[in-house]
Structures are given as C-alpha cells and as structure tokens.
C-alpha cells in the first residue's frame, strides 16, 4: 500500500506542485491549508509523514503545529519535515543540530525543493 503524505501549507499552488511530484513517485498525498485542519487530518487520516510549512497565518504557525502534533503520544514517531522559505528568519533558529531537542521535527528543508531531493527526503524519513 502506498504511503500517505500530508502537506500542510497555505499556498495551494505549491501544494499542487508538490502533490504532482510526490504522486509521481508513488505516494498518496493529502493536504491541509492551515495548522488546525492539518491536525484534524492527522487524527482522521493517519498519514505516514507530514510536510509542514513553517510560516502560514502567523510567523511561526508551523512551529506551534509541530508542538501540538508531538504532544499526542500517538504521533510521537510521526515524521515531520519542516519547509522553510529562502532566507527566512522568524526568530527561531533552523539549525537542526542545535534545535533537535528544542523542536520536534525530523528535518528542515528549504523551499523551493528540487523534486529529486523532495522524494529522497520523504523516502529517507519513511525509512525506505
């Protein structure tokens, strides 16, 4: 059965582009346009991996969503990949080595993402 990837991003065009890439690589893709809907989808549809945009409505909505997901014991191991925009600064440091304990996401990647990189990162985080 194909793995299910949830994309949480408020840019619908970007979501569609990533859907094209990921579906082309054989994944099932579902999406949500904001953090709240994203969390509902995680609970209802049980995705295998989440691609989470760092900056949606507010400067750091993505961070709050990541916290909320991790707080639920069911999703403690759900891989979360955080998408950041070029040169973005939100007051948080994006350095993974530094922030691993601080921020429970598995990986940061910078947008725009090369299709091959996106597929590779998703596969790696799914243990494939």
């Amino acid at each position: 059965m194909p793995k299910k990837v949830l994309i949480i991003d408020d840019d619908i065009d970007l979501v569609e582009a990533m859907r094209l890439i990921l579906e082309g690589a054989g994944f099932d893709v579902i999406d949500a346009q904001d953090g709240q809907k994203g969390i509902e989808k995680i609970k209802n549809e049980d995705p295998d991996l989440v691609l989470l945009d760092v900056m949606m409505g507010t400067q750091d909505e993505g961070f709050h969503v990541a916290y909320q997901i991790r707080q639920d014991a069911h999703f403690a191991d759900l891989p979360i990949i955080m998408l950041t925009a070029v040169g973005q600064e939100t007051g948080f440091s994006f350095n993974k080595d530094k922030d691993e304990d601080f921020l429970p996401v598995n990986e940061f990647i910078e947008k725009p993402i090369n299709p091959d990189t996106l597929i590779e990162v998703v596969k790696t985080n799914l243990g494939q």
């Binding site: 970007l14 582009a17 990533m18 094209l20 890439i21 082309g24 070029v86 973005q88 299709p115 091959d116």
Partner: peptide, 22 residues
C-alpha cells in the same frame, strides 16, 4: 515585500520542476 515575492516564485519553480520530472 520580499517574502511576498518569494512565495509565488517558489510555487512557480516547484510547479515547473514537478512538471518536468513527471
């Protein structure tokens, strides 16, 4: 302004790349 400029270009580039790949 530059953040607002970035978002559409990111969407454009990702769409093009996805299209090219598939």
């Amino acid at each position: 302004a530059s953040h607002e400029l970035k978002s559409p270009i990111i969407a454009i580039k990702t769409s093009l790349d996805g299209f090219l790949k598939n």
